[in-house]
Design a binder for these strands. Sequence first.
DNA 1: ATGAAAGCGCTAACAA
DNA 2: TTGTTAGCGCTTTCAT
Lengths: 354, 354
Amino acid sequence: MTISKADSVTVADVARAAHVSKSTAARVLSDRGSASPAARKKVLDAAARLGYYPNALARAMSEGRSKMIGVVIPDISIPFFSAVVRGLTDRMRAVGLEVIIINTDNNATVEAHSLELLATKRVDGLVLAPVIPEGSDIARTLAQRGLPIVLLDRRGPGLDDLPLVALDHEDAAYAATKHLLDLGHRRIAVATQVPENATRLLDPPDPAARPSALRLRGYLSALQEAGIAADTDLVINAPYDHVAAADAVAERLAGLDATALFATDSVVTHGSYQALQRLKIVIPDELSFIGFDDQDWTTLVTPRITVLTQPMHDMGRAAADLLNQRIANPNEAQQDVLLHGEVLTRQSTTALER
Amino acid sequence: MTISKADSVTVADVARAAHVSKSTAARVLSDRGSASPAARKKVLDAAARLGYYPNALARAMSEGRSKMIGVVIPDISIPFFSAVVRGLTDRMRAVGLEVIIINTDNNATVEAHSLELLATKRVDGLVLAPVIPEGSDIARTLAQRGLPIVLLDRRGPGLDDLPLVALDHEDAAYAATKHLLDLGHRRIAVATQVPENATRLLDPPDPAARPSALRLRGYLSALQEAGIAADTDLVINAPYDHVAAADAVAERLAGLDATALFATDSVVTHGSYQALQRLKIVIPDELSFIGFDDQDWTTLVTPRITVLTQPMHDMGRAAADLLNQRIANPNEAQQDVLLHGEVLTRQSTTALER
DNA sequence: ATGAAAGCGCTAACAA
DNA sequence: TTGTTAGCGCTTTCAT
């Protein structure tokens, strides 16, 4: 009833055809252990003749390593993640590991299921961009069981002892804000996802904060350093959805007498720009604008938009390296890797006229 | 020497703890075959107590199916592919299949290795966007061996009997060109990757043509239908690279007295738009412009760009469905699935003044 | 260097 | 319903 018995040539088949024992064949085919040149040749010939190719599943079973790693992220179709994943998979392939990607859509239940599933698949390691702020405790459990895990972009709640690879969000936002301050701006609005506990944001360096919260911290600390009192009116709560973000910014920005606007992520940057268009605000004459991530459109619109860019490919590579380190050396504690963002100065930000 | 013997609770462990035989435990844990309520409870309790979770590798081995499928594409970080893959993985997960993605960067060697590797992993099926025009013959070999394969976006050379899920490229380009013709345009330039055998493009419907060639066909047939003689000067050869495409278009468009321009893919659309900016051509007054794919920026620039959009998520879902059909029913021949594009009329195309 | 045999964790055919 | 047994294809002692 099987489809075609053309199925799988096995080591045993090769051994038989080469007139050697199964273990000899296995040794030369897996290229470990010793074998005489003569035997080696016989086996290789037979293998080629029969069209043998190994069964990685069986190999994984007996070796106890699947040569696969799992990547659990919100959504592969978000440019940030697809770029990071690209860097990550390139690096992983180079060391012979394949990557299974699962999208969570920021749903904690899906995340939990995904992690369990990957554990079931016996992946050799896991890269996780945890759902914030709910998160799941599965990751911690798996880590305790000895599964190497590296966090990406953010540290979820309760995941304190897992190493993180991410943009230095706070530093990046600081740099973006500083850029505006250096241009003489004093009333700088920020469009971001404001966290619940937004009040005393500067005091407690919550390690599990979402990136937007960290970026807001960076903004605030730059202001503080410049001796400018934070004005909560200038903080516009913009959802992670460019349509909703556009509405929020369009509505809130009007009353403010801001001379500059900083959008703290790519989606909000998109929405903010639409809001500015809708309000017919002339950039940069009436308002300087700095966005996040070097997206295509930021150089296609006029004027071109100044942005804070993050090294996504590097981030993926760094995550891969860190995970591989962890796989090779499970008990050794790893350091977080925080990458630096960079301001790409373009035409949407200018010195404040006075 | 193993890292931690906290490793793997097995069916046997559970059976022992539950005081039943291994097969009884196996039956309830895999939820097939019969078991008394009493036994079932004992096993489930024991499993929960011990923290049992199945080993998918072992299961795959004995079942002969890995519950994984491979996806081989040029580059996951290209928006088209990340969107398609998103639709694809969603659909696959729904039926319990995970997805391994491999990027080929349009390198035939990498493609060949990737396919072999995935075969080695014993994936249950494959989705392949083949490298054009070289391609590799591995795909054909694997298909003959009985591995279900579905082609995506394009049919490579020698892959004639594999089913394809793609945009109806020719029809889509026809629609885009028709849109311009309907607006009264007669001198319509097209920016595209011109195939080598560009001469008698209309005659032989080469099934293995690259998408850009098919799109050029669509353009030509629309002109032909309108009784307009094709002018090869209007066909601008633009590489799949937005910088190079911009240069090509900027250089070639100048002399032409074209009143409209059609860019046949997202990258060339990007480049073409840059070229138009560089040439300081006013859209749509001096030139109507229609691009490909509904990219973010096409609605952020002024005027907003008319584009031909393709249903990427649907395409991914369709590919998943087709592959699943093929897995369920390997000997039955499958039909190609060609999806239709749609012109999103915006402000960059207007009726020709006369 | 080579072969025999056990085992990875699971499923499934067969008896009882 | 339950247990016994034999694989799935590979790696890996352990003798020889």
